[in-house]
């Protein structure tokens, strides 16, 4: 098994004449927390969409666990062991928190569609186990008491965490988190940090987009910096934050402080 769980090789994504991503290379080491930072519009979410198969790159390729993802549907990529959250929270709003998580177990079930109607004992048992597993995941994300609440009725910070629980339910090897701290009340940031560390401890590789720099600095093993679709720097948090090019890209803004 290769050391890198994900390889992004020369990926370019153009919308019309505009290049949202320009020849991006990225290697994500297994078992690490790898953050992608950069100003708004630098192409971070576009990169997530290309990696997860929601959008096809104009050029270049994405290799996940040594398999080229070209032409694969997002659902098949998820089934291969990659999961994501969305920047603006994309929950199943009309479902309960527990149901949200159970939906994500879909690829892990042995039950076939016809088992909806023909239900031998093992299907029932699988369903019970599944429910228990999902309840555990809710508890891991601090949502144990919210299982029967409709997703749309949860406060924003909890919706963000429910998205993480849901993504974890797919049993990913690589988890992509798109700004998990955005909109989260200041008091819950530490909990979120802890959660990401717990996820890492479970052996799951995390690819993180985040604006809250102190969080990025605290949790990341590697940080990549994007600016206008280019990768301008990469390294440990310490290396990156002292990189003159990075500071230049942010136009002298005291971004380390400004974003915290």
């Amino acid at each position: 098994m290769t050391q890198n769980v994900l390889e992004v090789i020369g990926v370019t994504k153009a919308f019309g004449g505009l290049k949202a991503l320009d020849d991006i290379n990225l290697s994500v080491k297994r078992g690490t927390v790898h953050s992608i930072v950069g100003p708004n519009g630098s192409g971070k979410t576009t990169l997530f969409n290309v990696i997860t198969g929601f959008s096809q790159p104009t050029a270049g390729k994405v290799i996940f666990k040594a398999i080229d993802l070209k032409g694969k549907k997002p659902s098949s990529i998820t089934a291969m062991g990659m999961a994501r959250t969305f920047q603006n929270v994309l929950l199943f709003r009309q479902m309960t928190a527990l149901e949200n998580v159970m939906v994500a177990r879909h690829t892990k079930l042995r039950a076939k569609p016809y088992n909806a109607v023909i239900r031998p004992k093992w299907v029932m048992e699988e369903e019970e186990l599944n429910r228990a597993r999902c309840t555990e995941l809710l508890e891991l994300c601090g949502l144990g008491a919210r299982a029967k609440e409709l997703a749309r009725n949860l406060p924003y910070g909890e919706q963000k965490r429910l998205e993480i629980a849901r993504a974890l339910a797919t049993e990913p090897e690589l988890l992509l988190l798109d700004e998990p701290a955005a909109g989260t009340p200041a008091g819950e940031i530490d909990g979120l940090l802890e959660l990401i560390q717990k996820i890492k401890a479970l052996g799951i590789t995390v690819l993180l987009i985040e604006h809250k720099m102190d969080m990025v600095m605290a949790v990341s093993d590697t940080v990549s910096v994007l600016s206008f679709g280019h990768k301008i720097a990469e390294g440990t948090p310490a290396e990156v934050s002292s990189n003159p090019e990075v500071i230049e890209a942010y136009l002298g803004r005291k971004w380390l402080d400004a974003e915290t």
Binding site: T52, F54, K73, P74, S75, T78, A79, A83, R84, F86, L90, L91, F92, V103, A104, H106, T107, R166, A169, T170
Partner: peptide, 8 residues
């Protein structure tokens, strides 16, 4: 979109 992302 979310359903597809969850492997459905």
């Amino acid at each position: 979109t979310a359903a597809e992302a969850m492997g459905i």
